[in-house]
């Protein structure tokens, strides 16, 4: 006699096998290794832990990471909505090409992106030299980190906003127009509220990715402690000095932050789905 719950599941075969495999594989590869990090962190005393985190160099790196990631995500939110809007609303020659190229930062290995951006924004680079004339240094400054993080984060906003815009019912805009709303009013009061969950999701994804990004930043940042050192790099440095405890403490803080981001993102996704279901 099968249990009642398995009877209710329907008759398609393979649930036990695939589910079991999924859970085992997930546990072995992701859950157990991740829990080791917390296990290791728990062997440190509270004082040790806090001491590591409150170190000037660590705090400075957290500040650099959070500020540059946040500003990059902001930039992406604005720019990404613009790109998504153009791609979803207009037909033009080369649209398919542009649509494809948006994913370049996903497809391009981060190390390659890193060295390429560095060469462009260095003082003798294509863009760097013009900025230098104005007295602005991009590479090896927080500005450079911001450029790299904006580069890798752009697809997130575009790819979350674009489908919402594509499924958008033009009749709602027409309805707003028949009710006397101006185009600007329509955008602010009708389109934007509908788009907002997607924009915030994209923003959060870009932000989370930027916080953890390593490859594209190490080359352009210059890695000066207290100035242009980001958190992942600091973890790396501690590891190379065999300071496993220090690396673990910082990583734990970062991981908890990413978990929170992930929960927020999932909540937002759920909100978007609910929106769609209500239509």
């Amino acid at each position: 006699m099968k249990s009642k719950s398995s009877r209710n599941r329907g008759f398609l075969p393979g649930f036990g096998l695939t589910m079991g495999y999924t859970v085992i594989y997930l546990s072995l590869l992701v859950l157990i290794p991740l829990s080791v990090l917390f296990l290791k962190a728990s062997t440190m005393s509270w004082g040790e832990f806090v001491g590591t985190i409150l170190d000037d160099r660590v705090l400075a790196s957290i500040r650099v990471s959070v500020v540059t990631s946040f500003l990059a995500a902001c930039m992406n939110a604005v720019f990404g909505v613009l790109v998504a809007w153009v791609l979803a609303r207009y037909q033009f020659v080369g649209k398919r090409f542009i649509d494809g190229i948006v994913d370049l930062p996903f497809a391009l290995p981060t190390a390659v992106g890193g060295i390429a951006l560095t060469s462009i924004y260095a003082e003798n680079g294509w863009i760097g030299q013009y900025a230098a004339e104005w007295g602005i240094k991009i590479a090896y400054t927080p500005l450079g980190i911001w450029v790299a993080l904006t580069f890798i984060g752009l697809p997130f906003v575009v790819r979350t906003v674009q489908p919402v815009l594509q499924d958008w019912d033009l009749q709602m805009e027409e309805a707003a127009a028949t009710l006397g709303a101006t185009r600007w009013n329509t955008f602010i009061r009708v389109i934007l509220p509908h788009l907002l969950p997607a924009v915030i999701t994209g923003f959060a994804l870009a932000f989370a990715r930027a916080l953890g990004e390593y490859g594209s930043v190490v080359f352009i940042s210059g890695n000066m402690p207290l100035k242009t050192e980001i958190v992942p790099l600091l973890i790396m440095t501690k590891l190379e000095q065999f300071d496993y405890a220090g690396a673990t403490a910082i990583a734990t803080v970062m991981l908890v932050a990413s978990f929170i981001m992930l929960l927020i993102i999932n909540y937002l996704q759920w909100r978007i789905n609910k929106f769609d279901a209500a239509r």
Partner: peptide
């Protein structure tokens, strides 16, 4: 989705710790 949210450096670190 977890691995997407984890920094690659941390991904490496956990295996070093293990």
């Amino acid at each position: 989705d977890l691995p997407f949210a984890v920094s690659p450096v941390i991904a490496g670190l956990i295996f070093v710790l293990l």
